[in-house]
Design a protein around this nucleic acid. Structure first.
Lengths: 249, 249
DNA sequence: ACATAGTGTGCAAAAACCTGCAAAACCGGC
DNA sequence: GCCGGTTTTGCAGGTTTTTGCACACTATGT
């Protein structure tokens, strides 16, 4: 890999994720950390990013001094996104919802992936749109400002005509007794039809939402095939779900 | 192998792979690396590629990573957008296409406007989404990477069920003889159904596209109600269209 | 304070580069 | 065909760039 090419890749990653780690890049590009550090220094001088201890941040991100909690959960979501992205193979039909974890997944998709993505989430569609080999099917209906996804009977009817290989859902609450729960009734309608339509259901969530509950029920645990969190699958918090027959990643 | 022939091959490889290595080329073409280097230098001076340490990168590659924010007649489009935005009143149902002029219109909408916008253009939807009082209906179907709007029979069928008050179209070519013309067959199908569905049709275009022609016909001039350009309505270029019964703004 | 992880400096090897030069090929005119 | 001039190409050499490693130093968090 050429130096210039490598630096372009780094800039791309920074713009995408707002943050990069030296050791991650070193592993991804397969060069020493020293080289990465020198690259980051150069790019810093050119004003393409801001070098910090351990990696670099995007210019936009650094302007606002975010609370550290947000950065932390951003990290978790990126891990989740990367795990989820690995499930998708060339030629698959994938149905996805919205939410920040789904966006992170979209950003982690390999550039040369060739698959079909179906979604009603505008931010997710924008991400998919950037991938040259991905076909995007937009689910139309009225757009919800809160969730930034399309909601309504037309959307549900459309989803019911599909038989995707995989369905990715960002979830807001999951517990052993009540299964998956959520707060918005309209969103739940869509999620239910997505679950029913798909051959395999993958749920994404950060660990802090595990064993929590929301007022509206989406589905029982037995509808879920795979659960992805930022924790390793051996973590004690996840063992009850493994025991319930869910593949935990 | 002739010099000219060799350089043509190099340019071809760069356009194909976005990148070439000096030593690879040297091996493939069976000339010394010095010769390759000299070729790359010449091609660099001619602007055919960008020479870097170890090889060369395509111009396209460099554009993507170091985006050149080339603003194409941005000012004119802003004027058009502002004129168009004035046509929309509270409570209206508005159908819009895609394109940069439509985006400019969306950005010019007053914050307190309360109307319903229907569109299949993802960038336009993203703009509408930012307005607190605007309801957005998304037209679903397969997303075209080129035009960033949804295209297909489902989208057309959906549009045919609507009766919006106004329809805004960004157009690529208009002339007295052939009316509105465009280059993409699929996009034209959508535009035609949008025109048929709407009570009033508003066309937006920068003046340089007036009296130009494209291969695919969209509709005759008599289907258009309002034509908006960046020029004042008294401008001589526009008078033939006024005479044809179109309201020019 | 201690352990861990990240940093900067200097160094050395490899790769790529530049310069100048000469052989070979090519060209135009006689 | 022949001869001076130009272009092209490869090579020798010395220089610069790039990269990884060793080592001592500094930051960060528990």
């Amino acid at each position: 890999m050429l130096k210039r090419e490598r630096q372009a890749y780094i800039v791309h990653q920074v713009n995408l994720h707002n943050k990069v780690l030296s050791n991650t890049l070193s592993f991804e590009i397969d060069v020493s950390e020293d080289t990465i550090r020198r690259d980051l220094q150069e790019l810093n001088e050119k004003g393409k990013l801001i070098k910090v201890h351990g990696g670099a941040l995007s210019h936009a991100f650094n302007d606002i001094t975010y609370p550290s909690k947000k950065i932390y959960s951003q990290d978790s979501k990126r891990i989740i996104g990367e795990k989820a992205a690995r499930l998708i193979k060339d030629g698959m039909f994938v149905l996805t919802g919205g939410g920040t974890t789904i966006i992170e997944m979209a950003r982690s998709l390999p550039v040369n992936l060739s698959a079909t993505f179906i979604s009603g989430s505008i931010p997710a569609i924008v991400e998919y749109m950037h991938h040259p080999l991905i076909e995007v099917i937009v689910i139309g209906d009225k757009l919800s400002k809160n969730s930034k996804i399309t909601l309504g009977t037309h959307a549900i009817a459309k989803i019911n005509t599909l038989k995707p290989d995989l369905c990715f859902l960002g979830i807001n609450a999951i517990d052993l007794q009540h299964g998956i729960t959520d707060s918005d009734w309209d969103v739940v309608q869509i999620k239910q039809s997505m679950i029913e339509a798909s051959q395999k259901v993958v749920c994404l969530t950060i660990s802090e939402k595990i064993n929590t509950m929301q007022p509206v029920k989406v589905c029982n645990l037995n509808k879920i095939d795979i659960l992805i969190t930022e924790l390793p699958k051996e973590h004690p918090l996840l063992q009850p779900y493994v025991a319930a027959g869910i593949t935990v990643m």
